[in-house]
């Protein structure tokens, strides 16, 4: 009895010893050096792994930060300034100032303004209906309304408005990761600079057709009439392909263009007092 116990203990101990020696050498041989700062930086990143920075996940961004000399092109839109400052502190670098952005939908074609000319009965997937045909209205540029963007949002910051059939971004929840921008097959979502108090003015239309055709397809289409360009004192508005675009970095949110737009294609959001809060793509643009 005793000898059995002894043999067992000794043989197992020997086995353990040999294995540990082998393991030690193997560990030495295949050791991977990891910069401890990667872990430190990662601790300050949001761990959402949303891909908004252009990397597969937060850890990949942290690795890239440690590797790069400057912070050129590296930014976590979700963590924002706070996360970037921490990362810069850990690495002893200076974080570039990146303006926070928010997703906006560049279409305001509600059923009232953009009459439905057909009924789509296929799978509710924008990619499928976009490759099939123009969509339920005569506008070949506008929102399709099957909600690929809403499904792509992992932060619950978007929903489809049942009445308008258009996606709505909830500004407070949007972290501007850009997933919806990639999901939209017509590229009708833009990440725009956040203005003071979340205010923003933008052209809620993407129609590049000539004025007449655009207007026929949708009442609130931008017709490229140049009125807003003329009224803007800051040169923030340009027209290309019959479509106006307001450069958010030049825009001073003066609202002159909003008043001038004959089709109400320019939308103002979060301006007191006549605008209710957090309803970015509503028909509240009219004066």
């Amino acid at each position: 009895m005793n000898s059995t116990v002894l043999i067992t203990v000794v043989s197992l101990s020997l086995l353990a010893l040999v294995s540990s020696v082998i393991l030690y050498f193997v560990a030495q041989k295949f050791k991977v050096f990891e910069d401890p700062r990667i872990d430190e930086i990662q601790a300050f990143l949001p761990s959402a792994n949303c891909g908004g920075c252009g990397f597969a996940g937060c850890r990949n961004l942290a690795e890239a930060m440690v590797r790069s000399d400057s912070f050129e092109g590296l930014n976590c839109p979700v963590g924002g300034e706070a996360a970037m400052k921490e990362a810069a502190r850990i690495l002893g670098k200076v974080a570039p100032v990146v303006d926070p952005t928010v997703a906006v939908v560049l279409c305001n074609g509600t059923p009232e303004s953009r009459p439905r000319t057909s009924r789509y009965d296929g799978t509710a997937d924008c990619r499928i209906s976009n490759s099939l045909y123009i969509g339920e209205s005569d506008c070949s540029y506008g929102c399709i309304g099957n909600g690929d963007c809403v499904r792509s949002c992992t932060f619950g910051a978007m929903y489809l408005d049942e009445r308008t059939g258009l996606p709505v971004v909830i500004d407070e929840k949007c972290v501007s990761c850009g997933a919806c921008v990639k999901a939209c097959p017509r590229h009708r979502i833009e990440l725009r600079k956040k203005g003071k108090k979340d205010r923003k003015i933008y052209v809620a239309c993407s129609n590049c057709d000539k004025g007449g055709a655009a207007r026929r397809a949708c009442k609130v289409a931008c017709i490229g009439c140049n009125k807003c360009v003329n009224v803007c004192k800051f040169g923030a508005i340009t027209i290309e392909n019959n479509l106006a675009y307001i450069d958010a970095s030049k825009c001073t949110l003066c609202r002159k263009c909003v008043a001038e737009c004959p089709t109400n294609a320019i939308v103002e959001v979060n301006f007191p007092p006549r605008v209710s809060k957090a309803e970015p793509v509503e028909e509240n643009a009219s004066i």
């Binding site: 057909s118 009924r119 789509y120 009965d121 799978t123 099939l132």
Partner: peptide, 8 residues
């Protein structure tokens, strides 16, 4: 008057 459209 509106036609239905769907993939084949």
């Amino acid at each position: 008057n509106i036609l239905t459209v769907s993939p084949s």
